[in-house]
Design a binder for these strands. Structure first.
Lengths: 254, 254
DNA sequence: AGCTAAATTTGAATGCAGTCAAATTCTACG
DNA sequence: CGTAGAATTTGACTGCATTCAAATTTAGCT
């Protein structure tokens, strides 16, 4: 009966599936620093705004969110801690589903979502161990450490770089599975080297050079690519990708 | 939106976590053909008998159990189908947790229980495939096939055999984790060859010969061992086990 | 500043799984 | 065969997440 010293006493009554999903969604919506508004939260969770409103009040009573009525919700440090734990589990699960079980990267989110609130610490740790303590999910999002800190990263949006920039794709920042599948088909996955060739004006398409050839992407998709910029010298010589994760990491199934 | 042709339309509204756990428990309690009584069901689920009583009425309304008030509950064919699906998922999960993730056989039930109502068909199929379509869980219980049939088996209780009988352990029929751990320590796991040496009278201890030597077990534990009897000729020569699953299938962890 | 439209909250209600206490039914035994 | 004690069900209630409809607040525009 000794109390384990986790950061937050998550086992306290009242932190259940629903609460975890709310905190998860609020975390994602507040990453820009702005409070998450009720309608957005409701939409992400597939409930009505009135339902979300009621639930937000409950979360505020439990000191998991800081709620300014009619304005929006931010996470308290406690709420953030719990959210980060769920997100850690979600992303570890995605990695596990992809690397160990061979699910495609556009399939893992659905499964991980169902499992993230159900697995326990032992399961979490075992996945982490099996995967060699990964720092990113298959899409490239950072996996929070157990203490709630995020590993360092210097990802920048590809489209915010000057023409001619070369870098390694670090993240495809979307949860749209159809788009993910398309990115995969184009060879645009984390670890692959890309160079920004051309950006057509007035929201027009974007030309990228990849090891597999030239790729033309709509602006909306290209915006989702985050890279780590390579210094020009390094960019000049190296042309092979080092990693090639993809929708199909193994060979024998699906 | 085409409707998949599963046996039972489980996706119909009203089959949720709680229902699945009830059906699972009722299935186990009615395997002897006798109706499961309310108090037993309640105890297995950790709820009060009154709560279970109410839920049983609901399950009867949904035609998942056949309820005779004050007598007990049996599963309808529909209910059995759904229960078997959950049990299949539970046992596949146990196998997965043990073989793929390296959990000890006394740890897998807890995790599998949490996950069994959450995973979907795709996940189930993927595990099945990865494991090579196993027919038994780590403890030796049969894994129902997708169509709800049980694979053939000729397991018999070791203690119902005459002294001198030799066989292969097929199942350790308990969900008591402490006992499972002890069985594992004694080398009494599915696949291992045992011979029944001696049964002390008046409920006394039982002596077994295993590849690792002589084991003395209490009657209550020995009763849980199911074997497949070997013909005497075969029993005479072969002394090495062929399988050796155990709490620790891998070498590099835990 | 006023007004309208959108966002948000409130209030009343629902469905579900559970509790407790009281009433009912069953069963086994003298 | 009657009755005590156990098992079971019923009834009234709770907590939670949800819904819908109505009320309220906010924000944008002229």
């Amino acid at each position: 009966m000794t109390r384990r010293h986790e950061q937050v006493d998550v086992d306290r009554v009242g932190v259940n599936d629903a609460v975890l999903h709310y905190l998860d969604v609020i975390y994602r919506l507040t990453q820009d620093g702005q409070p998450a508004n009720t309608t957005e939260i409701a939409a992400k969770l597939g409930v009505t705004p009135s339902g979300a409103s009621v639930m937000l009040r409950r979360l505020a009573e439990r000191k998991l969110v800081e709620l300014t009525p009619y304005k929006g919700a931010l996470l308290t440090p406690q709420g953030r801690q719990i959210a980060l734990r769920t997100i850690r589990r979600h992303r570890l699960l995605e990695m596990f589903l992809h690397k160990v079980m061979g699910f495609a990267w556009d399939e893992v989110d659905e499964h991980a979502h169902a499992l993230e609130t159900v697995i326990n610490e032992q399961f979490e740790d075992r996945m982490d161990e099996m995967l060699g303590h990964p720092t990113r999910c298959p899409h490239g999002h950072l996996i929070p450490a157990k203490d709630g800190t995020l590993p360092p990263a210097n990802d920048v949006p590809l489209l915010e770089q000057p023409i001619g920039t070369t870098g390694i794709i670090r993240c495809i920042d979307t949860d749209n599975n159809a788009w993910l599948r398309y990115f995969g088909e184009q060879g645009l996955v984390p670890g692959v080297q890309v160079s920004l060739r051309e950006v057509a004006p007035y929201g027009g398409p974007v030309s990228l050079e990849t090891p597999h050839g030239l790729v033309i992407l709509g602006r909306n998709l290209a915006e989702l690519i985050l890279i780590e910029v390579m210094p020009p010298e390094a960019a000049a010589q190296q042309t092979t990708p080092q990693h090639i994760p993809s929708g199909q990491p193994f060979s024998d199934h699906r």
